[in-house]
Structure formats: C-alpha cells, structure tokens
Amino acid sequence: MPNHVQLVARRSFFLLLFLILTGCSSAYYRAAESLGFHKRDILVHRVEKARDSQEEAKTQFKNALDRFTALTGFKGGSLEEKYRELDAEYERSRAKADEVRKRIDDIEDVSEALFDEWENELSQYQNPSLKRSSQQKLTGTRRRYDQLIAAMKRAESKMEPVLLTFRDQVLFLKHNLNAQAIASLRGELDSLQTDISALIKSMEASIREADEFIKSVGGPA
C-alpha cells in the first residue's frame, strides 16, 4: 500500500496535470509553488525546453533541405515515393515550428506572472538597501529576458517563409509528378538555401541567448 507521502505526491501530480490541461495559469503557478516550484524555476525550465525545441527544429529544417536538394537531382525511380518523403519532411518541419511557437508562448506567460509578482513585492520591503538590490536584479533580469525573447521571436519569424515555400513545392509536386515539378524545385533551391541558412543563424543566436539567460538567472530576488 502506498504511504501517506506517496499519496500526497500523487494527488499533487494529478492536480498539476489537471491545471496544465485546463490551461489555468495562475492556479497552476500557485499549485506549483505549493510544491516548491517557484515562477523563476518554471521560467528557467521553459527557456531550457524552448532552447531544446529550437535545436530540434534546426536539425529538422536541415534534414528537410537535404531532402529537397536530393529531389532536385532526381534521375529516375518512383517520383510518387519522393513526393511522400518530401511531404513527410514538410509535416515534421511544421510540427517542430509549432512546438517552438508553443514554447515561446509558455515562456511569455510565466515571465509576465514572475515580473508582475516581483514588482508588487518591491513595495513590501522595509529595508531600503534590500529593496534597491532587488530592484536592480529585477531590472537586469528583465533586460536579459527582453534580449532573449526578441532573439527567439526573430528566429521563429524566419520559419514561416521557409514552411510556405516547402508547402507550395509539396502541393505542386503532388499533382505534377513529372519533369516540370522537378524544374520548379530546382528554381526554388537557391532561395530556399538562403532562407534556411538565415533561419539556422538566427536559431543559433537564440540558443546562445537562452544559454546566457539560464546562466544569469539565479539566487534570491
């Protein structure tokens, strides 16, 4: 039979799961804090998850470009099979892009709650020196956060043009399994390579910002 501690932990887990699924952010943060997970901890965790999602998206977009490039050199075989492969790469790329967007939304949600709470707590200080120190730390954390979220959104904004190009080519190939479709792919290759190179560069900059932010955030407010 599970002991009391196990039962409490299990109930707490299912409570957090329910709050996540129902999308009640404020209730989720209160429940998480009751278990010892503060908003700062949640923010850092979500930045780590977003960074990892960007790493995965970067790899996926590279893979999709490789598949696209290989298809432009198509010499023979089943063009229907090549279409399915390219379509699968597009769908995987779209899914990774959606995941990155969701991770950024999650970061913005908890950061707003954290900074509002931190700002409100400043008025509770009686010691001017401690208040000044906390204010300075809040200002610095906000500045680093603004740099981080700007970098993440710059990288995220570069995904959609690439996805639209992929989608157009996949749709065209679906109904034109012939040399005309391959010629169309070749015509888009240089532009697509340029766009994906810019996307990867932005993602790498965003990932570096995430690493710097994670390192910088710590210690009591």
Rank of each mutant, 00 (worst) to 15 (best):
G76S: 07
G77D: 03
G77P: 00
G77C: 06
S78D: 12
S78W: 07
E80F: 08
E81L: 13
K82G: 05
K82Y: 00
Y83L: 01
R84Q: 10
E85R: 08
E85I: 06
E85L: 13
D87Q: 04
D87Y: 04
A88K: 03
Y90F: 14
E91A: 11
E91G: 03
E91I: 09
R92K: 14
R92C: 09
S93A: 12
K96F: 13
D98Q: 12
D98C: 00
E99Q: 14
V100R: 00
K102S: 15
K102E: 13
R103T: 13
R103E: 15
D105C: 08
D105K: 13
D106Q: 13
D106T: 11
I107C: 10
E108M: 14
E108C: 06
D109K: 15
D109I: 14
V110T: 13
V110D: 07
S111K: 12
S111Y: 11
D116P: 05
E117S: 14
W118F: 11
E119F: 04
E119V: 03
E119A: 10
N120K: 15
N120Q: 12
N120L: 08
N120M: 10
E121Q: 15
L122G: 02
L122F: 02
S123G: 12
S123D: 09
S123F: 08
Q124S: 15
Y125G: 03
Y125E: 06
N127G: 08
N127C: 08
N127M: 04
N127W: 08
N127K: 03
P128R: 06
P128G: 00
P128C: 02
K131A: 06
K131H: 05
R132Q: 04
S133L: 09
S133Y: 07
S134M: 04
Q136V: 09
Q136D: 12
K137P: 04
L138W: 04
T139Q: 14
T139R: 13
T139H: 11
G140V: 05
T141S: 14
R142C: 06
R142F: 02
R143V: 04
R143E: 14
R143M: 01
R143N: 05
R143P: 00
Y145K: 03
Y145P: 03
Y145A: 00
D146I: 02
D146S: 05
Q147R: 11
L148W: 00
L148Y: 05
A150L: 05
A150Q: 08
A151F: 01
A151S: 15
A151D: 04
A151E: 02
M152Y: 05
K153G: 03
R154T: 14
A155S: 11
A155T: 08
A155Q: 05
E156M: 05
S157Q: 07
K158Q: 12
M159I: 01
M159P: 07
E160V: 02
V162A: 10
L163D: 04
T165V: 13
F166L: 14
R167I: 03
D168Q: 13
